[in-house]
Design a protein around this nucleic acid. Structure first.
Lengths: 191, 191
DNA sequence: CGGTTTGTTAAGAAAATATTTAACGTTTTT
DNA sequence: AAAAACGTTAAATATTTTCTTAACAAACCG
């Protein structure tokens, strides 16, 4: 058996962190967040609040990369600026509560999806409606416009529902509705 | 006023579709799906089942692109192979029910997230545990291992919950729990 | 079987994205 | 007010990803 000293242990701890950091990065990649942004998040998740310089040192990347990375994560509402007293540099902290992470991340995306598509649908239907009203057109064309109009109309309930879901996630209601279901015990509380 | 004939109407219908197709593509881009895959989905959404050649003609792209695009969409469970009788070419159809789209898409992603991270956590904790058991280490190092271990332990309830949510989405339970909420007010009717 | 058609894989070209270095503007400190 | 530190933006570079053309493999038809 070889000696197992503090240095080796530290390396092993670091390795254990990296395992999870990589996994978090891959997860975020699933949802369209850059892997490097994901790695940054994972690092902040373990390190607590950090300055840009600390991130740069930790990840071995340039400072502008850190700056834009943090900005991206802020856009997703999973990183916030913090204040470390007596510290001139800005500090940032990653959301550590994955329930809040989920909440912030998906409600943001779903809101955007709902608004974006409802706007497109409204505009599209407006155009189709004016075609449907035009008497000089062949029945075939008029009918096609109507079919497309109806397809769009039928999709609206989904967006209303999505908006509702987003609200429930935002307020935390969803966590009351969907129960926790650990294999055995559960002592955690949400939000 | 210019005449408004069938040809112009058809162009206008096509334009109305494109409006929504672009919006769908942007939406899917939000979730990390390529814009071109999103455009392909949008096209299939309106066209119904299509062969690869029809897609190629419609989108003006190469056939291998269509092939890989369809494959990607199949991975997300939002496109399926269909059978058009007496047709030698394969045909594919896009999921038109956005509720099912949501269901298929997110349950797939969430499952993957849960499994992926739980595996990483288990492995990481195993490593940390063996450090915590090593008596020859300094208290400082041992404690750091324990802290990291605990952070990971605390995140587990989230993944259990996520798995639960994924199941509820898969089975459709979620649609009973989160009510539909069409805006019962019609103060804003645009024509 | 041989010849065709269809779909996929591979390799190369093109495009988009990420990253870095350098320059800039702003704030803080002395 | 000047100098220094910090963060962001811009331009250039590097890398990755996407897309196309070409070669390949499998299914279908006579």
């Amino acid at each position: 058996m070889a000696e197992f000293g503090d240095d080796q242990a530290k390396a092993s701890i670091s390795n254990a962190k990296d395992l999870v950091i990589d996994s978090l990065a891959e997860t975020m990649d699933l949802y369209g967040v850059t892997r490097s942004a994901g790695t940054l998040y994972g690092t902040m998740y373990f390190e607590g609040d950090m300055t840009l310089d600390e991130m740069r040192d930790e990840l071995g990347m340039s400072k502008p990369s850190m700056s834009t990375g943090v900005k991206k994560l802020q856009d997703f509402n999973v990183v916030k600026k913090t204040f470390r007293r007596g510290q001139r540099k800005h500090t940032y902290v990653a959301e550590r509560d994955f329930f809040k992470f989920f909440s912030n991340f998906f409600s943001h995306k779903w809101d955007r999806e709902a608004v974006l598509n409802m706007e497109a649908i409204e505009q599209s239907q407006k155009q189709l409606h004016s075609i449907m009203e035009t008497a000089t057109l062949s029945e075939e064309v008029r009918q096609e416009a109507e079919e497309v109009y109806d397809i769009l109309e039928q999709s609206k309930p989904y967006y209303y529902w999505l908006q509702r879901l987003s609200d429930m996630v935002k307020t935390g209601e969803i966590f009351d509705l969907v129960p926790f279901h650990p294999p055995e015990d559960d002592e955690n509380e949400q939000n």
